[in-house]
Simulated assay, not measured.
Amino acid sequence: MAQKTVYYIEGDGIGSEVWSAGRPVLNAAVEKAYGKENALDWQELLAGQKAFDETGEYLPQATMDALKGAELAMKGPLQTPVGKGFRSLNVTIRQTFDLYACIRPIKYFKGIESPVKRPDLVDMVIFRENTEDVYAGIEYASGTPEAKRLIAFLRDELGANVDMAAGVGIKPMTEHGCKRLAKRAIDFAIDQGRDSVTLVHKGNIMKHTEGAFRAWGYELAEQEYAGKVVREGEGDGPVIIKDRIADAMFQECIMRPEQYSVVATTNLNGDYISDALAAQVGGLGLAPGVNMGDKLAFFEPTHGTAPTIAGKDMANPGSLILSGAMMLEHIGWHEAAALIHASVEKAVAEKKVTVDLAGQIPGATQVGCAEFGEILLANL
């Protein structure tokens, strides 16, 4: 029997509701696919308001210690403490465990209204670098002593033409950071049988940051994936690697989405593209995600705590459930993941959905969080 330990954090706001509705679906999908051969061993960790109520800390050391040895974790949405403590619990976890790849699959579920004509052609997985670029950005406000000192250095020492009244920012990007993100995307494409990886950048303007991301991505592909990855226009291969300038990619996402499968991109570009694609498929309530490092993969829904509907049985557990399906795919339990996707597709097709999706599906029957979970269980 293969048993996988999954550490989970319930989360704040609607966290307890989506977990109550969602975890039984994940367990049932595994049992349906494998009988008693495979199972998930859930181990709860405390974080957020629940942790504070029980321990006086929002992110207890015991939780961090457990995660140090973990390979799989899931969490509900976490509220940022107001006025003191961590700037963001999510960012603290991400930085502490070097979860450098933010991965978001974007796929259409039939029946949801979309602002575009062919949302069904969108089936992409975005790999967004999660630690560099603007996330590690350094900024100085216009007119401050720091800005003036930096501008003076740029002008006097490097000959740069910068207005002394400018606000200035630095976006650091390293070969190590760019290559490990590209490697994660290429490995995923090979493992999942996807046909292409697209490097998205603004290298025509920012040649030594965005342009370097492109160059390092191609270099990695040539050095480590000979025979497995072929550059666009240089022959056929299991995986084609190509690149697109960021602004052109937005047009491509609308006009020719079927030509793109896995996208590897920088932090800021990834932020834009992920949300734009999610809007195209109209499925914001069904948007899963994971923050992943070399050892720990931390899966989570992309929505927030939604305090205005907490405790009202109105939340959509779909994002958490589909994040769980991502986790099952990550560990190679593809049959169980496929059952979950089919279950969600059937629920949407039958128009029995939570309030957030009901507004996007004409003639839908609105159900509560718990009932939606029960519907997904029955669909399995």
Rank of each mutant, 00 (worst) to 15 (best):
T305R: 02
L328Y: 12
V353K: 01
L322G: 10
L320R: 06
I331V: 15
A347P: 05
S319A: 15
V353W: 03
A306D: 02
T354S: 04
L322A: 07
N316L: 03
A342N: 14
T305Y: 01
L320S: 09
K346R: 14
G304R: 09
E335T: 14
P307E: 00
A306W: 07
G304K: 04
D313V: 02
S319F: 08
V348R: 03
L328N: 10
T354E: 09
E329F: 10
V344M: 14
V344I: 14
H334P: 01
A306Q: 01
S343Y: 06
I309M: 08
G311P: 05
A349F: 00
I340G: 10
G332W: 14
T302K: 12
L320C: 08
G304C: 05
T308F: 00
A336T: 06
V344P: 06
W333P: 12
M327C: 11
T354P: 06
M326E: 12
G318P: 08
H334V: 14
G304V: 02
L322S: 06
P307L: 01
L339E: 10
A342C: 00
L328S: 12
K346G: 03
P307W: 03
A310S: 12
P307G: 01
L320P: 08
A325Y: 07
V344G: 05
A338D: 15
G332Y: 13
P307Q: 01
V348I: 15
N316E: 04
M314R: 15
G311A: 04
V344K: 07
S343A: 15
A336P: 07
V344S: 03
A325R: 13
E345Q: 15
L322D: 07
H303W: 10
P317C: 09
G304N: 03
A310H: 01
V344F: 13
I340T: 06
A310E: 00
A338L: 11
A336M: 09
A347F: 07
G324S: 12
H341P: 06
S319I: 01
L322Y: 11
T308A: 12
K351Q: 05
T302I: 15
W333N: 13
A315M: 04
T354C: 11
S323W: 06
T354D: 09
L328E: 11
H330K: 14
K351V: 00
S323H: 07
I340H: 11
E350H: 02
M314K: 15
A336F: 12
I321K: 09
E335P: 07
H334F: 13
V344D: 05
L339N: 09
S323D: 07
A310G: 02
